[in-house]
């Protein structure tokens, strides 16, 4: 009966259609996220899970300096990656939106997105080849006589992780900025210049503020997922470049301590979310819709 009534209005039919994907996300996302929260308050000894409520996992994260250090380093890396990626991406988005013929915009976007979809693991590995001791950068610079000895600060440390991640997330940053730039009414720019602003001041007083929603989206879409990457730090970071995601992975797969891993994942997630919310809050004046 209820179903019949639901089918009457278009909104009801839309809700019925939305139900399967929603149920799927509920079962495979919401329930697991709740489970992970629950687990973080339990303990595990090899295969036996002890379900008495305890704050031990969180206590360990606070008292053992290694976790704080990894978390700090992860946030630092994610922050650097975000800044580098977004700063490099903005001019590209600007170029495609303002200086590319409309009929060729989609081919540019296509070219930008292709590397993003292909063989993530192998791409990360190839950065090792590029940045390594006998790598492309070093042999190139030595061949040109710029340096006498291979540079060592670009592999097996945090810098290498940042470069590689900035490469991997580039398209993620370009697309939202591009969309925001496309929405800008071009007559506003003309008006600004007619009223005596230079091109540069037009950019800073009109274009940039209007593209802020895209910029904020780009920051979030890079900053949040980078915290969860363990491939790049594992391959590129060496001993001093491991991040919190490596520790989570170790706790789950090698040490069989799922509750501590769950607590670590949650703490990392909470830090990232808090920073993201703060960032959105600080930029709230740019995000308000204009009519």
């Amino acid at each position: 009966m209820a179903r019949f009534r639901w089918g009457q209005s278009e909104g009801g039919r839309a809700a019925l259609l939305m139900a399967p994907p929603f149920a799927y996300a509920l079962l495979l996302l919401a329930v697991p996220l709740l489970a992970i929260i629950l687990f973080s308050f339990w303990t595990q000894d090899f295969m036996d899970v002890n379900t008495t409520f305890t704050l031990d996992n969180y206590r360990e994260i606070i008292t053992q300096p290694i976790y704080g250090l990894l978390l700090q380093r992860s946030l630092y890396v994610s922050g650097c990656v975000t800044i580098v990626t977004v700063l490099l991406a903005y001019p590209i988005a600007y170029f495609v939106s303002f200086h590319v013929d409309p009929s060729r915009k989609s081919i540019w976007l296509f070219l930008i997105t292709i590397p993003f979809w292909t063989s993530y693991l192998i791409r990360v590995f190839l950065w090792k080849v590029i940045l390594g001791y006998n790598g492309v950068v070093n042999s190139g610079l030595m061949g040109l006589g710029v340096i006498d000895e291979p540079l060592t600060f670009i592999l097996y440390n945090v810098n290498a992780v940042i470069i590689t991640l900035a490469h991997a997330f580039a398209p993620f940053a370009i697309l939202p900025i591009f969309v925001a730039l496309e929405k800008i009414d071009r007559s506003l720019l003309e008006a600004s210049q007619d009223l005596g602003e230079t091109r540069l001041s037009t950019f800073f007083r009109v274009t940039l503020p209007l593209s802020m929603p895209g910029l904020v989206a780009a920051v979030l879409i890079v900053f949040i997922p980078t915290i969860g990457d363990y491939v790049t730090p594992e391959l590129m970071g060496g001993a001093g470049g491991k991040l919190i995601a490596n520790m989570i992975q170790t706790q789950f797969l090698a040490l069989n301590n799922a509750p501590l891993g769950a607590a670590l994942a949650l703490v990392a997630m909470i830090c990232v979310t808090a920073i993201s919310l703060l960032f959105v809050f600080l930029n709230r004046r740019w995000l308000r819709g204009r009519s």
Partner: peptide
Amino acid sequence: PLVLPEIIVAVSLLIV
């Protein structure tokens, strides 16, 4: 899931 770190999806599903 578009913005969720993949490791979160992975470990939470693994637990369940």
